[in-house]
Design a protein around this nucleic acid. Structure first.
Lengths: 192, 192
DNA sequence: TGAGTTACGTTTAGATCTAAACGTAACTCA
DNA sequence: TGAGTTACGTTTAGATCTAAACGTAACTCA
């Protein structure tokens, strides 16, 4: 998966006097720079999405990378935590079919099948034949799997809470509201 | 990479009378539901990040999946487009070292090396020994690579513009501002 | 009632990524 | 001046994902 925010062309004639004046010290352009540059290169191009899509993608990657590092140190991995969590959130009796898990995590059923196989091998879940539907298989948390989530939660949440501390309570509320609205709309438009 | 927003436990005693009343028809809980549920399960847990991190990660995935589908139909792939774009944005003479590309795309140098090898095989870039630094290699766009970006831009931008159309101009401006602020802060805290 | 269809989970082939190990060239400095 | 260090790009091993092909069990319906 690569950056979904289309990258940027730079001005055709960069000022030698003020090189990178609006740039990050590491040479990373801001989303606004990107949109402006595409406007200059292709006037009339529909660039209004760049300021939204680029930072969302970068932030997602920054959050994920940070969490991956923290979890690796704890001997867990994000895919497994995600699997256990989605079952946990489904409520008692803490069991979900493969298909449902795939739907709730935006991951393919094949990938879920592999995640479940790994987690079962590690004693975190067990598979049982389901009662409903055609050939459903229920994936159930074991006591060990249940305990693993409980142990990991505070670490991950605490870490993420520190990362969003730069925004005030009010800013976070406004941001969350806009994100939820956008997500509902995107899901409708993409049919997912 | 799995969902970095910690998933949610459901209430221990789900109301049978109103099952999933605040849920998405597909069974996906909203970020607010997730935070509320963790508060109930683990009172005092630092859940303030969930409303931010969860939708960001989901939106990133929705945007990426949609773009991947569109690009596949056009016979390109997102990783290659990302590579070509970052070189394009660096401005004339459209050449960047592997190290710089890795830094600007949040991808490891090894992955860039592989992307460049694929793109070179396809005639989209060429590698040339660099003049500066120790052993730098400049990755340069070919005419074909340059043309490929130009052809792909409008398609991808148009697609993404439609996806964010649910937000008004003002809402997009506010959202973009908050995202930029948050991103600067997260980068500072994670050192990236 | 039995052929066809549908709805699942699993397996396989192939792509791509990360982390770590390498291999070198270019600096440093006693 | 030459051993050690540093800064790169590349290769390798291993993990994981997607898409597509499978294999079945459970429905449908003439």
């Amino acid at each position: 998966m690569a950056d979904p925010a289309l990258d940027v062309p730079a001005p055709d004639v960069p000022e030698p006097g003020a090189p990178g004046s609006s740039e990050d010290p590491r040479g990373v352009h801001s989303a606004a720079d990107i949109a402006t540059a595409w406007q200059r290169e292709r006037p009339g191009a529909p660039t209004e999405s760049i300021e939204i899509v680029t930072p969302i993608w970068w932030l997602g990657k920054l959050f994920a990378d940070d969490r991956d590092r923290a979890l690796r140190a704890a001997g867990i991995d994000a895919a497994t935590l995600d699997l256990l969590s989605v079952i946990r959130r489904s409520g008692p009796p803490y069991a979900l079919s493969t298909r449902e898990i795939a739907c709730r995590t935006l991951v393919t059923a094949g990938a879920i099948s592999q995640r479940v196989a790994r987690a079962e091998r590690d004693g975190l879940v067990v598979r049982r034949p389901g009662t409903t539907g055609r050939r459903s298989v229920l994936v159930c948390l074991t006591a060990e799997g249940h305990a693993l989530i409980e142990r990991s939660v505070d670490t991950v949440l605490g870490r993420e809470a520190r990362l969003v501390r730069g925004l005030s309570d009010q800013e976070r509320t406004v941001l969350a509201g806009l994100l939820v609205k956008l997500m509902a709309d995107v899901r409708r438009r993409t049919g997912r």
